[in-house]
Every structure is written in structure tokens, then in C-alpha cells.
Lab assay of single mutants.
Amino acid sequence: MDSLVVLVLCLSCLLLLSLWRQSSGRGKLPPGPTPLPVIGNILQIGIKDISKSLTNLSKVYGPVFTLYFGLKPIVVLHGYEAVKEALIDLGEEFSGRGIFPLAERANRGFGIVFSNGKKWKEIRRFSLMTLRNFGMGKRSIEDRVQEEARCLVEELRKTKASPCDPTFILGCAPCNVICSIIFHKRFDYKDQQFLNLMEKLNENIKILSSPWIQICNNFSPIIDYFPGTHNKLLKNVAFMKSYILEKVKEHQESMDMNNPQDFIDCFLMKMEKEKHNQPSEFTIESLENTAVDLFGAGTETTSTTLRYALLLLLKHPEVTAKVQEEIERVIGRNRSPCMQDRSHMPYTDAVVHEVQRYIDLLPTSLPHAVTCDIKFRNYLIPKGTTILISLTSVLHDNKEFPNPEMFDPHHFLDEGGNFKKSKYFMPFSAGKRICVGEALAGMELFLFLTSILQNFNLKSLVDPKNLDTTPVVNGFASVPPFYQLCFIPV
């Protein structure tokens, strides 16, 4: 009986604490739906499609509103004006990374994606500088992407125009580009180590996009005490870190300090320079996690976009025909596509942009946080508050993009057929937390897609009208449904 009384008292205290925290903070924060004790607004949000729920709530509470995930307040920004004001106009104040408990377990605050403060700034600055020195957006990395595009075309030829699921092959190409940047090595598509790495990356994007992960991140005790797919994700990350550590040891034994070959060499050189400046942010643990982040951000996002792009091109054969006509006119058949071609191919450029806009790969991006107490639109948001960005509300804005739910390359073309930029184009987020590999991803999408369409016609196994382009999961990332196609050599 005594234990029951204690339990009831504990629960009562928890409920009172929950109510007090919510009521004391709500006077400062933007308005929002009334949260339930302990669980907050979790029942009012469709976990399978958070973005749709945010759109519905914005119609009631406006472009800036507050939700509670458990006891934790989260300020939501919906629509271009609110997102721009926060991420661009007040970029420094909104540059923090929001709480992501599962990532905390995986990387302990290291790396480039989930770190904060001085650690994040130094690692991000170093990573950007190193990638630029190796030619991100310049010639040397373009050579690597072109080489991988040629290998991709050869792998597709091996399908002999038979029906195939493109998931694996389209994942190999961007993964190999990242391998060449980090390890100075590309792998054969049949290499077992490479296959294991690909498998872990593919599993992780599916797990991260599941409703279960949303629950884990908002009720963090689940991570330590409950079984579930989150444990598989943590094991996959541990596998990748151990693999990278092996490569780091190989580099330490063979590195030429006067001739760095890749990202690992550059990081080890930085560690050597910083060894007298303790404590340094440049450690082996930081290198492991930064490399894992580059793999995660640079492989599955690009391969998922490529997979979605081919599905949309199957669905819209008239678009595919126009792209192939432009390829034939500008590039021809006797040389590989290059980035200089893009400025002469406005329709193809528009298609690449429209694919990214339409699929809305990361509907709410990753959570941000404010780095200080900030007054925002007459609300006071306390330091450390998590900020949720609705990228969907920007990419699918119906004023900027008429009929935003329709796939239409003319969203990025003017009346004369010239490519038209849009400030609403934010597939990689915006501001200080914009994806480090934005330029690389854009290069890969253009070169891989043009190389495929230069060499193959795409054949659907069903009537294009019957192809479903609805994402199968739409949590962290929008993942396309399973499909097969035939690559018919031109």
C-alpha cells in the first residue's frame, strides 16, 4: 500500500510540474494548442506526416506557434517570411542545433551535424575549407563525379535492359564520391566492405524516417530501456565508426604531411598542428563522427533524390523527352556531361530543381535551437528552445509555385524558357546551418541524371499514369515507394 501511495504522489508531482512548466512558459512563447500533461501535443500531431499537421496548425495559430513534445516546448516556423527572418536575418541567433537524443547517444555531441557552439563552428569551418581545397564546386571533385558517372552508366548497362530496382546502384554512385573525398578511394560496386557500408546507410535513412524515431526523440528514456529499431540505428553508426577508425589508422601509418590526399589526411594534419593548443576540438573521436556525418549527409540524401527523380521522369515521359532533346543538342553522344553545360541547359536545370522542390526530401529539416534569449515577432523565446522549420511550407508555397503539388519544371523557367532562380528554393535548409555539401549534391544530381539520360531511355513496367509517387515514409525524410524500371541503351 505504501508503495502505491508513493507512486501516486510521484505521478501527481510530475503532472503538477508539467502543468507549471507549460503555464509559466506560455506567456512568453508564441500561441499554440493546449498541451496535455506529460505528453504535450503529441496526440494532435500525425507522426506519419508531421508536415501536414504543421500546415493545419498554422492555419489556426499563424506562421509562428508553439507545440509541446512531452514536456519540451518547440517553436514552429511556417512559411517563407518566418523562416527567412529566423535563419537568414537572425542567422546567428537561430544557428543552434536542437535536442536530438538519439544523435546524442550516437555521437556524444561530436561531428558537424549535431554539434553546437565553438566545437560546431570550428569543425564546420575546417570541413568547408577542406572540401573547397579539394575542389568542391571546382574541377578536381567534378572529375571524381564524372568518373563515377561513367562507372554508374557501365553498371546500368550490365542490367541488359531487364527490369531492376535502382535503389542499390543509385546509392553506390554518391557513396563512392564521398569515399573518394574521405578515403581517396572508390570501391567496386561488388566489394563486400562497400556493400556493408551501403547497407547500413540505407537502413539508417529508413529507420530515421519512421514514426518510432519521432517518439524516441521526444521521450528519450525509451532509447535506453525499450527495444526497437533505434538500437539497430545505433549499432549501424557504431559499425561505421569502427570502419572509419580502421581507415584512420591506415592513414596514420602512411600519411605524407607534405601531400595530403583526402579529408582524413587533412584532419590528422590539423590534429598535429593543434596538439599544443589544448583542449582542441580536433580529436580522433571528432574525426570519426565528422566522417560519419559526411557519409550520412552525402550519400543517402543524394541517392534518395536520384531514385525519386527517375520515378518522376517515368511518370512524366514528356519531361524526359525534353531533357534528352536538350542533352542531344548541347552535349551530344561523344563526350561526358560537365558542369559548364548546365548554363546552356535551362530546361534540365529546371527539372533538377523541380525534383528537389517537389519531393521535399527533408520536410522539417533537422531541429534548430536559439543560442540566446531572443525577441522574435513580439515573442520571447528562451535560450536553448528547439525550433522546428517547415521546409515544406517554403518549397510548396502556392504563391511562389502555382499548383505546388504538381510536378512542373516551369516553376523554374521564365516566359522565355530561361532558368529562373527562386529564393524559396531551400531543399538544403538556409542560413548558417545550410548543408555543407550543397554544391557537391547539386553537381552530382546534374551529372548523374544527364549521364543516365544521355545513355538510356527509361521504360516503366506499368502505365506511367498508374505510377504512385507518394512517399512511403514522410517523417525525417521523404522516401519514394518501391518501383522497377528498364534502362534501355540509346
Rank of each mutant, 00 (worst) to 15 (best):
P166A: 02
V462G: 08
N218H: 10
F263L: 12
C10G: 13
P346T: 07
S209V: 07
Q22I: 13
F482M: 12
R21G: 12
K270D: 06
A103W: 15
P30T: 02
I223G: 12
L67E: 00
L29T: 03
L14S: 14
F401R: 01
A309C: 10
V76A: 04
D293T: 05
T159L: 12
E253P: 06
L461A: 12
M406I: 13
L17K: 12
K28M: 12
A350R: 00
L449I: 07
T301P: 08
E253W: 06
R132L: 05
A103I: 15
N218I: 15
R377V: 02
R124Y: 02
Q454L: 04
P363N: 04
K247I: 07
K383I: 04
L54T: 07
E438Q: 15
P35R: 10
N403F: 07
M269D: 11
K273Q: 14
R144C: 11
P227V: 10
L458M: 04
K121E: 09
R21A: 14
L380T: 14
G442H: 15
R150H: 10
S393L: 00
G117C: 09
F446M: 02
I374Y: 09
K158E: 09
S286L: 10
E142F: 03
F226D: 03
C266D: 06
G475Y: 06
K190N: 14
P33S: 02
I331D: 01
Y379H: 10
I222A: 08
V490A: 12
P227T: 12
K59Y: 10
V6P: 12
N418Y: 08
L233F: 13
T66L: 04
L413P: 00
P367R: 14
L449H: 01
D49C: 03
F126E: 06
K399M: 10
I47H: 13
G109S: 08
L128Y: 09
P101F: 07
E326N: 01
N378V: 01
A430C: 10
V8E: 11
F239V: 09
L440E: 00
K420H: 09
Q252G: 06
N196A: 14
T304M: 08
T386K: 09
S451P: 03
K383H: 05
V490P: 04
V330F: 08
Y243H: 06
R307N: 04
K52P: 08
L152G: 00
I45N: 05
T301M: 01
Y61Q: 04
M406D: 13
A161S: 13
K375L: 07
Q252L: 08
K241I: 02
I488Q: 14
T229I: 15
Q454F: 03
K375G: 06
T470V: 07
D293C: 05
S390A: 10
G384Y: 04
R139S: 10
L388M: 11
D262G: 14
K48I: 06
S24E: 09
K52G: 11
L11D: 02
R26G: 12
L314I: 10
N56V: 11
P382A: 07
T348G: 02
E288R: 06
C216F: 14
F263I: 06
L19R: 14
K399R: 12
T304W: 07
N196D: 15
G296R: 03
G137I: 09
F295I: 15
F401Y: 10
N259M: 05
C338R: 10
T364C: 11
R377W: 06
T299E: 01
E253R: 13
P409A: 03
T130G: 08
S162K: 15
F456S: 00
D224P: 11
K465T: 10
I88T: 14
K270E: 11
V479R: 15
L388R: 05
N116P: 04
G475A: 10
I112N: 07
E81A: 11
D49L: 03
E438N: 13
F419C: 06
K465L: 08
V177I: 08
V8K: 12
F419V: 08
I374F: 11
Q324Y: 05
P346A: 09
T304S: 06
N398D: 13
V113C: 07
T301C: 01
C486R: 14
Y358G: 02
E400K: 09
A86H: 05
A103H: 15
N474H: 11
N258R: 12
M129V: 12
G437H: 03
K119L: 05
Y243P: 02
T392H: 14
L366S: 11
K121D: 06
P317L: 02
T167L: 01
L391C: 08
I42M: 14
S343I: 12
G46L: 06
T348L: 06
S336E: 14
T320R: 13
F69C: 14
I213Y: 15
N107S: 15
T229R: 14
